[in-house]
Simulated assay, not measured.
Amino acid sequence: MQSLSSGEPFAQSTSHYEDWMLKMTTCEMNILTSQEFNCAIDQFKDFLLDNLQSTVRFKVVVAEVKQVNEERYMFASSTIGQDDTRLEFTISYDKFYQVPIFSFRFYINDKLDFNIDELDQSLKESSNLVLNRLVDLSIIDHHLLHQPWFQIHPCETLNTLNTHVQSQRTITSGQNYNYKYSISYLSCWFGLYALPEIFPQFSIRPVIYS
């Protein structure tokens, strides 16, 4: 992934759209539908709280599933390191790209900070949290909350996930097929396109089903 300059606004470029359409027409994708996402997000929230780990001190203060019209999403707030650093993030679903989206923002001393250079330095000093500057981050208008948030552009997500989870529908077949596949999919996605990708000090324990 290529890094963006500080504060570069989100824009859906023609090349992003054309690349995405080409992959959609040439591959049979393993897609988590919006209905499957809506059904699984409560269980994934619980799974995430049980399996999220980090080399830096953090405490989840709020974690809940909310809804805007018919679209459900997870909202979480956590203190990182010292209590003056607060991370908020959401997990929602993009119907155009047909993938989950991780959006996040930080409060430093109760001040919302979108200057990526200043934020990176503040996190290092206050929490020993290191931002992966190779990740392509943009400041976008949250598609459900209509507020500015950081986000990884989702144009490559579907193709990457297809490579990683193509065997999951066979592996997780059986009585709890839908639940197992959805949680496995979301767990794989979270590791590749959410908190652990942006901040490598975080990780999620893998899903293991007997």
Rank of each mutant, 00 (worst) to 15 (best):
L144E: 08
N115T: 08
V99I: 03
R169A: 07
L186F: 03
I31F: 01
D50C: 11
L87E: 04
Y73D: 12
I198E: 02
E36V: 08
R205K: 15
F10K: 11
I41Y: 02
D94Q: 04
D141C: 14
Q121H: 14
D50M: 12
I183R: 02
Q53T: 12
L4P: 04
Y73C: 06
L145P: 03
S184L: 09
M1P: 05
K59D: 10
S126F: 08
V62F: 08
Q2A: 13
H143F: 09
E88K: 08
I183D: 00
F102I: 03
Y185I: 09
M21A: 08
T157G: 03
V68T: 11
F10E: 14
F114T: 02
F47M: 06
G7M: 07
E71T: 11
R169C: 05
Y181H: 12
H143E: 14
I208C: 11
V207S: 02
S92V: 01
G174V: 04
Y181R: 07
I140F: 11
Y17T: 15
H142K: 04
T33F: 04
N176A: 13
H143Q: 15
K23N: 05
Y107G: 01
E118L: 10
F96P: 00
E88F: 13
F37S: 00
L161W: 00
F104T: 05
N128K: 08
I208P: 03
Y209I: 15
F89A: 04
W189G: 01
D84Q: 13
S210D: 14
C27P: 07
Q151G: 13
S187G: 10
E36R: 14
Y17S: 15
S127H: 00
D120M: 02
